[in-house]
């Protein structure tokens, strides 16, 4: 095989899944109805599971390096999915800024998932035919799950947009809050082996189809956008996520249960 994913690329894919999965897991026990609470917990679990697969692949790659001192290692001197998730600081994370933003209300949560899952769906479609067998397998598996996420979030965005004045206003507000962050999708700063131009066109067509059903104006790609996530320059929100998520491993190194 000629294509070998870089550690940065794998960590970027893993961080995206972990941070969004963690955010969605915050809804567990707080959903507006039992079915939706369970749906979000299931979706969160899908992302955390995908993160484990990407981190493990990254860890395998790191462990085959001559010098792995730049990466967090366990007591045996190995990188693992856990050392990568729990022992890196905010500036090491390479996730998109969009995914670390707080959940906000139901409109922000469902619209963010739609924007992100629609991007993920197109990305994973391309990666699922990648010549690297493990990349293709992880992508193929996650793709099926993400397809369900797109459908669920799409249904909610339409329902909010086509619902009451209040729900429509909230969806509008969510759009204005989230839209400046979508530009990071198309930078492809880590040079993933994908055709970004065709993805962008398909993504915008899909989103605008949902916007039309939601009585929202058609979205146009922003001329200026928030950026920095893939280079480790994050919003203030990421540090709070990590403080909560990593507390146990930081306070009790190598703790197991």
């Amino acid at each position: 095989m000629s294509y070998q994913p870089t550690v940065s690329q794998l960590i970027h894919l893993a961080d995206n899944a972990l941070i969004l999965g963690h955010r969605l897991s915050e809804w567990c026990g707080h959903g507006p109805a039992l079915e939706q609470d369970i749906a979000l917990s299931n979706i969160a679990l899908d992302y955390v599971g995908a993160a484990r697969n990407w981190y493990q692949l990254a860890a395998n790659q790191i462990n085959s390096l001559q010098d792995k001192a730049a990466f967090p290692l366990n007591a045996q001197g190995e990188a693992t999915e856990d050392t990568l998730a729990y022992l890196r600081d905010a500036f090491d994370f390479k996730n998109f800024l969009l995914l670390e933003l707080p959940n906000g209300d139901w409109a922000v949560t469902t619209l963010r998932l739609l924007l992100s899952a629609s991007y993920q769906q197109l990305l994973l479609q391309q990666l699922s035919t990648n010549e690297h067998a493990d990349v293709a397998a992880i992508a193929a598996k996650s793709l099926k799950e993400v397809t369900y996420h797109v459908r669920w979030s799409e249904d909610w965005v339409k329902r909010l947009g086509d619902g009451t004045d209040e729900s429509h206003q909230r969806l509008q507000a969510a759009y204005h809050e989230l839209w400046p962050y979508i530009g990071e999708f198309w930078e492809n700063k880590l040079a993933l082996p994908i055709d970004i131009a065709s993805m962008q066109a398909q993504w915008l067509a899909k989103i605008n189809q949902v916007f039309e059903a939601s009585h929202l104006p058609q979205g146009v790609l922003p001329t200026w956008h928030q950026t920095g996530g893939t280079e480790g320059i994050h919003t203030e929100h990421l540090g709070y996520i990590l403080a909560e998520m990593q507390f146990l491993q930081r306070a009790y190194p190598n703790a197991e249960w």
Binding site: I38, A39, R151, W152
Partner: peptide
Amino acid sequence: LLSAFGSTACKAL
């Protein structure tokens, strides 16, 4: 269909 996500990751209700 009552819910696209059920009691475990593999099921719908």
